[in-house]
């Protein structure tokens, strides 16, 4: 009974915080609302006995939203402070589409003949996940690792201000570096 009450309380917090992301007047508030929604979902995942994933969601998303809040205060041309903002387009179509998607998904959730539980959860869910990742699902782990490494490289290339490719061309063969301020050692 207590678990049900906690689940519904967290569900209300998760959804309302999600709505608040697009309603509040400041982007900093929006990112912390999203963090709150993630924390609520992370706690619900904990209620569903997935300890590792639940804690991971909470830790990862709190850090991510903190970075996002700093990022928005640094870069966003609009108001990161407490001034009003209404930066939407096509809201007239977006609202009915999202309501329609909710009704469709809700109908599926409520009326689909969901199967009864097959098997039982392992005694130590986290240890079982680790064994799975380091054993039969090693390919998944290896692929995710490569994707993460590619993401780091791509992110740096996109976000860097001026790299050697900007200065010396894509093949690095430009005889003179294209610098905004001439000088330095010639090549």
């Amino acid at each position: 009974m207590l678990a049900h009450l906690v689940f519904w309380g967290l569900a209300v917090v998760a959804v309302l915080a999600g709505v608040a992301v697009f309603v509040v007047n400041s982007m900093a508030r929006a990112s912390y609302s999203l963090a709150l929604s993630f924390i609520a979902v992370g706690l619900q995942v904990l209620l569903l006995q997935q300890l590792y994933v639940g804690v991971l969601v909470i830790l990862m998303m709190v850090m991510e939203m903190a970075i996002m809040a700093v990022y928005m205060n640094m870069f966003m041309g609009m108001n990161p402070a407490m001034m009003s903002m209404n930066m939407v387009h096509g809201a007239r179509h977006a609202l009915p589409v999202s309501v329609g998607v909710f009704l469709l998904l809700a109908a599926g959730a409520l009326f689909a003949p969901w199967p009864s539980r097959r098997g039982s959860p392992p005694a130590d869910v986290t240890a079982a996940l680790g064994t799975e990742l380091m054993g039969p699902k090693m390919l998944t782990m290896a692929t995710v690792g490569v994707v993460m490494a590619a993401t780091i490289v791509s992110g740096v290339v996109l976000a860097a201000h001026r790299t050697r490719y900007d200065r010396l061309g894509d093949d690095l063969r430009r005889p003179r570096a294209a610098d905004p301020q001439p000088g330095g050692v010639s090549r």
Binding site: A11, V15, G18, F22, A94, L95, S98, V101, G108
Partner: peptide, 17 residues
């Protein structure tokens, strides 16, 4: 799944609008 559907729909509204 009902709660998940609500979250997905709210996110969809944000992504579209």
């Amino acid at each position: 799944l009902l709660v998940a559907a609500a979250l997905i729909s709210v996110g969809l509204y944000g992504a579209l609008s």
